[in-house]
Structure formats: C-alpha cells, structure tokens
Simulated assay, not measured.
Amino acid sequence: MTVKPEWLRVKAPQWERVGNVKEILRDLQLNTVCEEASCPNIGECFSAGTATFLIMGPACTRACPYCDIDFEKKPQALDPTEPLRLAEAVKRLNLKHVVITSVNRDDLADGGAGQFESCIQAVRALSPHTTIEVLIPDLCANWQALETILDAAPEVLNHNTETIPRLYRRVRPQGDYQRSLEVLARSRAHRPKVYTKSGIMVGLGETDEEVRQTMRDLRSADCDIITIGQYLQPSAKHLGVAEFITPAQFDAWRVYGEEIGFLQVVSTPLTRSSYHAEEVQKLMVKYPRG
C-alpha cells in the first residue's frame, strides 16, 4: 500500500465522545458505514456525535473491489425492529441531520426499499425536526422501489456514481454508469422537491477531463450536490491507489462544479459521501424547495 501524503493525515479524535457514540450503537445493535467501510473520518464524526447508519447489513450482495464492507457473509433476513432501533439512536444522539445508507441487497425483490421507507417513517415519528438523507444503491433499476423510498419524503436522495465510466468494469463490476445516472434523473422527476446528491472517488487512474465529464453528466441528470474525495485502499486485497490527488486539484473541481450549476460541491482529499452532510441544511435555507 502506498504511503499517504501529509494532506491525508487526520487529527486524533476525542475518544470520550467517540466512546459515547459507540456505546449507543452497541446498545441498540446498529451498524455504521463509518466502521464497516473503514472511513478515515470516523474519529471526527463520532467526536461530533454523528454517524451514517448502515441498514440491512453488514453483509453485502456485491463485491466491489474498492469497498471494505463484507461480501463473504450470507445476507440475513430483514429485522423488523431495525427501523425503531435506528430512530432511537437518532433521538439519543440528538441529530439534526441523519444519513441512512445500506449494503446492496440484490437478494430482495425491492432491493430493501421497504426497509428504507420504514426507517424514514420511524425517524420522523421520534425526531420530527431531523432532516433525513438516504444514500441508496441502484436497486437493480427497480423504479417502483425507488418511488417507494422517495414517497417516504426524505430531504435528500443520494446515490453515488463512484467513478468515471471508463473504470466501471474494474471498480464497480456489478454496477452500471447509465443506470446510476438514471436513479438520479428519475428521483428528480418523481419528487422535484427532494435534493439529489452523488459522489465520486478519485485517484484510481481517471483524468481531469474524465472527472469533469462525469460532473457534467451528473448535472445533466439535474443532480444538486456532488462530493469528490480521494480513494484510499482499505487493505492489500483491495484496488490499489493509482495517484494521490493534490488539494489544489480538488479545489479546481470545486470551482468547476459551482460554475456548471451544482448547488453544493464538497471536494477535498478526505471528503466522503456523508462527510459534513449536515451542511445540506444551509443549502435548504438558501435554495428552498417548499
């Protein structure tokens, strides 16, 4: 594994606060993408009392070579108590904004859309003032399932494109670039008031122009928010890093994204899809959708 440059070093977390979040998660038997996907920002986010909840896991039905989530375990039956436990965690942590994501559950007819719906409803019941962001898989192009999630009225619908088209077969072999764009376009068409969001990783061998073209493709799908972050290799068995992108290049992409019409561009080496996701509340004030 390649040695990380100085700009990818993270500050030591406040372990007392981290321990409090972990205690709540263990008590309620919940998974977080922060832990399952080895996110480099886990200390900062847990210290701030935030977490991205991972439902229907931890086992995933896809084997993306960049991801540290377990795909070797057999997916279990959905737990009907999970939405209530998640909602209780949101209440205990007093979250103003919550991100709910999932593993891929291609074994389910609706891809897990019903569980997303139940989680949104449970959080609304216990924490009515908390804004909700869902980070969803592509649902195998089950558009009725997508509408089920959208009709539960989350404030933000996030679906990551992950990489540029040329690298899809290597990086995301069970995904489809055009299908991911369609998830976002259909979301906007079905629920125009819901903010749409997507994210990509860089440092896998893409060119500057390929990143910019992907950004243009996302804007063509009427995507509101984009996150761009450095890919970091979770272990020696995962895809290697082709290049560490400089902070200056990330800033150039941020400027370009704003120029082509994104409402919000979060582009730094340590950016992850749900990093500082609560900042979307400022966007909602600036660009209200009713």
Score class of each variant (00 low, 15 high):
residue 167 L to N: 04
residue 167 L to Q: 05
residue 167 L to M: 08
residue 168 Y to S: 08
residue 169 R to D: 06
residue 169 R to Y: 00
residue 169 R to C: 02
residue 170 R to Q: 13
residue 172 R to C: 11
residue 173 P to H: 02
residue 174 Q to F: 00
residue 175 G to C: 12
residue 176 D to Y: 01
residue 179 R to S: 08
residue 179 R to K: 14
residue 180 S to Q: 12
residue 180 S to C: 10
residue 181 L to H: 07
residue 181 L to I: 06
residue 181 L to Y: 02
residue 181 L to E: 11
residue 182 E to G: 05
residue 182 E to V: 00
residue 184 L to N: 11
residue 184 L to I: 13
residue 184 L to C: 05
residue 186 R to C: 03
residue 186 R to E: 11
residue 187 S to T: 10
residue 187 S to E: 06
residue 189 A to K: 12
residue 191 R to E: 05
residue 193 K to P: 00
residue 194 V to I: 10
residue 196 T to M: 12
residue 197 K to Y: 09
residue 198 S to M: 09
residue 200 I to F: 01
residue 203 G to K: 09
residue 210 E to K: 11
residue 212 R to I: 03
residue 212 R to V: 02
residue 212 R to K: 15
residue 213 Q to W: 01
residue 213 Q to C: 00
residue 214 T to S: 03
residue 215 M to V: 03
residue 216 R to I: 00
residue 217 D to H: 15
residue 217 D to M: 02
residue 218 L to M: 14
residue 218 L to Q: 13
residue 219 R to S: 01
residue 219 R to A: 01
residue 219 R to Y: 00
residue 220 S to N: 14
residue 220 S to T: 05
residue 223 C to W: 03
residue 224 D to L: 08
residue 224 D to M: 10
residue 227 T to G: 14
residue 229 G to H: 15
residue 229 G to N: 08
residue 230 Q to F: 08
residue 231 Y to P: 07
residue 232 L to W: 08
residue 232 L to A: 04
residue 234 P to Y: 01
residue 235 S to C: 01
residue 235 S to M: 04
residue 237 K to R: 15
residue 239 L to P: 09
residue 240 G to K: 14
residue 241 V to W: 12
residue 241 V to F: 09
residue 243 E to K: 13
residue 243 E to F: 00
residue 244 F to N: 09
residue 244 F to D: 02
residue 244 F to M: 03
residue 246 T to E: 14
residue 246 T to D: 10
residue 247 P to A: 01
residue 247 P to N: 02
residue 247 P to G: 03
residue 248 A to E: 15
residue 248 A to P: 07
residue 249 Q to L: 10
residue 250 F to D: 10
residue 251 D to L: 13
residue 251 D to K: 15
residue 252 A to K: 14
residue 252 A to L: 08
